[in-house]
C-alpha cells in the first residue's frame, strides 16, 4: 500500500510524502493520471474508506481521528462512485437508496422520502415516475444521477467524484457534467473530480493535479498546467490525448511501456524509467516539488525544474518543450 502523510487545512489536503495537495472551499480540484496511479485510492482515503497508514487528514481544521470521527467526516464529505451499477443496491428502489443515508442520521422516514423525491427532481428524474424503480430499470446516466442525488441527500460540503462520468457515453456525460456544475453553485459544493479524461477535467476543474505511481508530479491551476506542462509526465499525458485536428495527430506513442509495478516503484524519480530526459540523478534522488516559473500555486516535482538538482537541463529555470 501507498503511504502518504496527509495534512488537510480548511477543506484542504497537504501531504508531505509526495501526495501533497489542498482543496480550497468552493473549488474543483481535478485529479488525472493513468490507471493504477493511485487516483481511486486517494479518493477512498479522502472519505475514510481506506485507513491512512501515516499522516493526517484535516477537514475544516479538524484532524481525523483527533477532533473528527469518521462519522463527522461523512457529515461533510461524500462520494460518487465510478460504477453506476455496482454503486446501487439492486434490491432497493432508488427512493429507498437515496433515503437510506438521511434515515441513518435520524431523519424521519417520511421526511427522508420527501427529501429523496425532491433530490430526484433536482437531478432530472421525475420522482413520480422513477422513485419506485429498481436500478436495473434505469440507464447508466440515470443511475449516475441517482448516485449524485444520494450523495446530495447527506448534505455534504465536499463531494469526491471518482470517475463519475467515465462510464457514460459522451452526450450523457456532458449532461451529467452540466448538472454537476449547476449543483455545485446551487449547494455551495467543493469537488474533487477524478478522471483519466483530460478534456473532462479541464472542463470542470479550477485546479488540476497530475499523479504518477502514487505521487503528485504536478499541481496547479488548469490554465497554467495546460499551457506549461512542466513535468515530462504531464507533457506525455497531454500528448497522448487524441487530437481533433488531423494535421496534429501523434503517430509515435508519447509514452513507451507500461507503468512499473507500484509495489516496487523505481528509485529516485518514479518516472525516470520512462522519461526521455532521464539522467543518472533521476534514478538516485527523489525530486523535490518546486514552483514552476516562480508561480506560488503551480508546483511540479522534476529535477529539471530544480536549479540545484544537478540535472543538465536544470540550469536557469528551464521550461520543457511540450511533448518532445
Amino acid at each position: 500500500m501507498r503511504k502518504g502523510i496527509f495534512n488537510r487545512k480548511t477543506n484542504a489536503v497537504r501531504a508531505v510524502d509526495g501526495v501533497s495537495f489542498t482543496v480550497a472551499k468552493g473549488e474543483t480540484l481535478g485529479i488525472v493520471g493513468e490507471s493504477g496511479c493511485g487516483k481511486s485510492t486517494t479518493a477512498r482515503l479522502l472519505v475514510g474508506l481506506e485507513g491512512i497508514d501515516a499522516g493526517d487528514l484535516i477537514f475544516d481544521g479538524d484532524r481525523l481521528g483527533v477532533d473528527l470521527s469518521l462519522k463527522d467526516l461523512w457529515d461533510g464529505v461524500q462520494m460518487v462512485f465510478q460504477d453506476s451499477y455496482a454503486s446501487l443496491n439492486p434490491r432497493l428502489t432508488i427512493e429507498e437508496t437515496i433515503a437510506f443515508g438521511p434515515k441513518m442520521r435520524g431523519v424521519a422516514a417520511d421526511e427522508a422520502r420527501r427529501l429523496a423525491h425532491e433530490l430526484l427532481g433536482r437531478v432530472g428524474l421525475a420522482p413520480a415516475r422513477f422513485a419506485g424503480r429498481y436500478p436495473h430499470e434505469l440507464s447508466g446516466g440515470q443511475r449516475q444521477r441517482v448516485n449524485i442525488a444520494r450523495s446530495l441527500a447527506m448534505k455534504p460540503r465536499l463531494i469526491i467524484l471518482d470517475e463519475a462520468v467515465s462510464a457514460l457515453d459522451k452526450s450523457v456525460e456532458a449532461q451529467v457534467l452540466n448538472l454537476l456544475r449547476e449543483l455545485k453553485d446551487e449547494f455551495g459544493l467543493t469537488y474533487v473530480f477524478i478522471s483519466h479524461d483530460l478534456n473532462v477535467v479541464r472542463y470542470v476543474s479550477d485546479r488540476i493535479m497530475v499523479m504518477y505511481l502514487g505521487e503528485v508530479v504536478e499541481i496547479g491551476p488548469v490554465a497554467a498546467v495546460w499551457e506549461k506542462r512542466a513535468h515530462p509526465y504531464t507533457a506525455a499525458l497531454f500528448a497522448a490525448m487524441p487530437s481533433m485536428d488531423p494535421d496534429n495527430r501523434t503517430e509515435v506513442p508519447p509514452l513507451a511501456g507500461d507503468p512499473p509495478n507500484p509495489i516496487d516503484p523505481p528509485s529516485g524519480c518514479r518516472f525516470h524509467t520512462r522519461c526521455s530526459f532521464a539522467e543518472p540523478v533521476c534514478g538516485k534522488t527523489r525530486p523535490k516539488s518546486v514552483a514552476v516559473d516562480g508561480a506560488a500555486d503551480h508546483d511540479a516535482a522534476c529535477h529539471m525544474l530544480d536549479p540545484i538538482s544537478g540535472h543538465s537541463k536544470s540550469a536557469g529555470g528551464s521550461r520543457l518543450e511540450a511533448a518532445e
Binding site: 461523512w74 462512485f81 465510478q82 443496491n89 447527506m154
Partner: peptide, 13 residues
C-alpha cells in the same frame, strides 16, 4: 461492491 461503501459512508452502523 460500491453500494456497500456508499452505505458505510452514510454513517450507518
Amino acid at each position: 461492491l460500491e453500494y456497500v461503501d456508499a452505505a458505510r459512508i452514510s454513517g450507518a452502523r
